[in-house]
Amino acid sequence: MAENPHWLLLIHQLPPKPDYFRVKIRRRLHRIGAVALKSTVYLLPHTEQAMEDFQWVLREIAEGGGDASICEATFVGGLNRDQIVTLFHTARNADYQQLVEETQTLMEVYPVPDHEPMKEEQRMQLLHDVRRLKRRFDDTAALDFFNASGREAAEDLLAKLEARTQAHQPPEIGPTPLSLSTLQGRVWVTRKGIHIDRMASAWLIRRFIDTEATFRFVSPRTYQHQAAELRFDMFDAEFTHEGEHCTFEVLLERTGLHDPALRAIAEIVHDIDVKDDKFQREEAVGIDRLIAGLAMTHKADEDRLARGAAIFDDLYAYFQRKQR
């Protein structure tokens, strides 16, 4: 029996003129996430959405005086699957890198204020820029069919930029004074694709703050906040970056957890997440590699949390024993 086709090919021939039509079709193909095998052959994974996208492009080419065909394909020689996936990774990583560069530029334009809060007009402009970049990130992520490596760096940097819209404006949990008794049995929400700060914060919440915590990992683009939910390390969250502090540090401070072993872990998380070498923890490099490997191996956030919790349990035990 023949193998089911894994790919869709769009093979096209465009009229030599006008030039803008060629540019238009190239941009259209880029917007749907297609990669070029040849100058006239474009590729997408075989899905219903990809078929529909290619059909629209085919119609557009025909209306512009060109010719195109859509083929179902399985490669049996030449390119193998890993090489094809690398083409998609390269395309998406280029898009993520552009986002990283633009985000870094905005972080220089809107640094964390040292003493006075950010002016409201600055904050609103930053908020506008953050929303614009988040839309671009979501559009790119929707075309990231094979989880390109550049995604997490772009997402984490955007989260840090988002936090600056809240500079010197500590988020409120509600009219009830903050205490551990008000944080029991809650639903805790954060961005999916958890990495060091979100992973460590989720561990801290379940181990020391809310042992009955339920976690939701969401896409910020589609998430609708519910009044009973508590958000962490995401835009408009009750607990997120404040000034130069990562979410883990904020959780410790605002819940009154002053355990020296937790403070040591907070310093490691800070050095990995914020990347400013503030504490120069020698353990940071090793933990960073462990978390990176964990994230590469486990795509589901529940699996990442379970594996990460074991790491932080052992790290906590180490620092407790070291202090005796």
Results as ranks from 00 to 15, higher is better:
28 R>E: 07
150 G>K: 01
237 A>R: 08
246 C>N: 08
240 T>G: 03
194 I>S: 04
115 H>C: 11
65 G>E: 03
152 E>F: 12
155 E>C: 07
165 T>E: 11
28 R>Q: 10
156 D>P: 02
319 F>R: 03
14 L>Q: 04
93 N>A: 06
11 I>R: 05
264 A>N: 11
21 F>D: 06
322 K>N: 07
90 T>K: 14
141 A>T: 11
72 E>C: 13
76 V>Y: 05
191 R>M: 05
220 P>G: 04
61 I>V: 14
177 P>W: 06
119 K>Q: 10
207 R>I: 05
194 I>W: 00
50 A>C: 11
212 E>V: 01
277 D>I: 07
238 E>R: 03
282 E>I: 07
267 E>P: 00
50 A>Q: 02
80 N>L: 09
98 Q>L: 12
164 R>S: 09
177 P>M: 09
88 F>G: 08
152 E>K: 03
17 K>N: 15
223 Y>N: 05
3 E>I: 00
58 L>M: 08
206 R>Y: 03
249 E>G: 00
307 R>N: 14
319 F>C: 05
25 I>L: 02
104 Q>H: 00
217 F>S: 04
262 L>T: 01
54 F>K: 01
86 T>K: 07
37 L>D: 09
16 P>M: 05
324 R>G: 15
89 H>V: 09
225 H>V: 00
77 G>T: 15
225 H>P: 08
103 T>H: 01
24 K>H: 15
215 F>T: 02
164 R>F: 03
105 T>A: 13
176 T>M: 09
76 V>N: 07
45 P>E: 04
267 E>A: 13
120 E>W: 01
295 A>I: 06
165 T>K: 03
35 V>C: 10
149 S>I: 08
223 Y>F: 13
159 A>W: 05
28 R>T: 09
62 A>V: 06
254 R>W: 02
31 R>C: 14
72 E>R: 15
163 A>Y: 07
60 E>P: 07
125 Q>T: 13
74 T>Q: 12
196 I>S: 05
323 Q>P: 00
251 L>N: 05
36 A>H: 14
158 L>P: 01
89 H>F: 14
133 L>E: 06
302 E>N: 13
167 A>C: 12
151 R>C: 11
41 V>L: 00
241 H>T: 08
231 R>V: 08
265 I>V: 15
252 L>Y: 09
70 I>R: 05
282 E>V: 11
68 A>K: 06
55 Q>T: 09
86 T>V: 13
148 A>R: 03
110 Y>K: 09
199 M>V: 15
23 V>I: 13
261 A>Y: 09
175 P>D: 10
186 R>C: 07
285 V>S: 11
198 R>I: 07
287 I>P: 01
166 Q>I: 05
154 A>Q: 04
124 M>Q: 14
320 Q>S: 08
82 D>H: 13
201 S>N: 10
56 W>K: 09
63 E>D: 11
273 D>N: 01
81 R>L: 12
15 P>D: 02
227 A>V: 06
124 M>R: 15
42 Y>I: 04
124 M>F: 06
297 T>P: 04
